[in-house]
Nucleic acid binder design. Sequence first.
DNA 1: GTCTATAAATCGATAGAC
DNA 2: GTCTATCGATTTATAGAC
Lengths: 213, 213
Amino acid sequence: MTKRSRVHQSTPENERAILEAALTLAVTAGYEGTTMAEVARLSGLPTGSVYWHFNNKEQLFAELIEYCFGKWKEDHTGPTNRDLLRRSIAGSAGGSTDPENKAEAFWILALLFALEKRLADNAARKKYLDVRRQMFELMVQRVEPQIPGSVLAADPDFGRKMVVLGRALTDGFYIAASAGDDIDFMEFADLSASAVEALIARRAAMAEGEVEK
Amino acid sequence: MTKRSRVHQSTPENERAILEAALTLAVTAGYEGTTMAEVARLSGLPTGSVYWHFNNKEQLFAELIEYCFGKWKEDHTGPTNRDLLRRSIAGSAGGSTDPENKAEAFWILALLFALEKRLADNAARKKYLDVRRQMFELMVQRVEPQIPGSVLAADPDFGRKMVVLGRALTDGFYIAASAGDDIDFMEFADLSASAVEALIARRAAMAEGEVEK
DNA sequence: GTCTATAAATCGATAGAC
DNA sequence: GTCTATCGATTTATAGAC
């Protein structure tokens, strides 16, 4: 309930206002669709001020990605439970419809940076790919303890593989949500988790039942 | 005046050249990143001719989606085998890197339209969402015969659910390919197929183990 | 049907007063 | 640091000769 206090002055008030304005617009309008003029208007500052705080549009979005990554990390701390993948996929539904959960919805926009290779030299795309790697490593640390030791002994990379699979599923359901597919995300969160669990169980049986490959 | 008629002729030469040029550019540059001037240049025609054949950019992309859907359907006819999902995911690796395989690369363009909600009123996005539904139904027809009868008896929608899951995986691995994730797509194609098979096996065991319900 | 030239609008970014 | 005014580049789309 109590949000983590943001007493640090690292992000001044006006910069935060600009970032929040950019986030609100970006979630519904995307990268190209968000204009600096509109960011300025929504933040209550003139365009000149926006360019004083951020060098250009690229850098604004790069810092926006960092800003949202900070929010994501807040949501992914604390004790690990077995519902990691289930909650990730279930969250994809709300991310596209719930206007309050902007940080969640932003990852749909982030996927655009992955797809738009035209932005290869774009600072924002580079930042997203960097954050994507960091998210992956954080997820590996949370998932690996849940893999049976016998499976990891037979295949030390199995935890990483499950994270790759889980990320593909999460990204895929983000797309489904964005496309407006009429599906029950809670049900598919369960189904996906079951599929991964079945895979792990199969591997565990294999690892214990067989000495050779 | 007289609009072109496709009754007697299918996609005249110059229109095809324009569509192919648009596809080549769109796959790497996206919707906004593809300019009509560049489409004209690559097709070898001036911009005026492009606008004579297609009313505007929206309609050009809408017809491009239809055009690519035709290619996709050609690749998804014939006998169904068990490797449907495996091949879809394995294809995602080449789809984003091999410029020749434009029918597969089209998937990336499609994902762009799925994600860009700003284009909600865009004719091209509407066309894509329509095509997305058609693709889904075609996949259901191919997948359902592979589901054990006992599972379908217990859950008539199980085939559709597997297609939703398969589509999420395929979309997710396309993003992984676009993001440049350093993964072995062949391995994850196998792993994904295994996960789905394990899920079906688990359901089959469940369906046969219970007589009632 | 093809092509050139250009209109009309938008957007990112800057200059400079305060 | 804030704000106004505006530049320069880009892009969609059209007009009109051939």
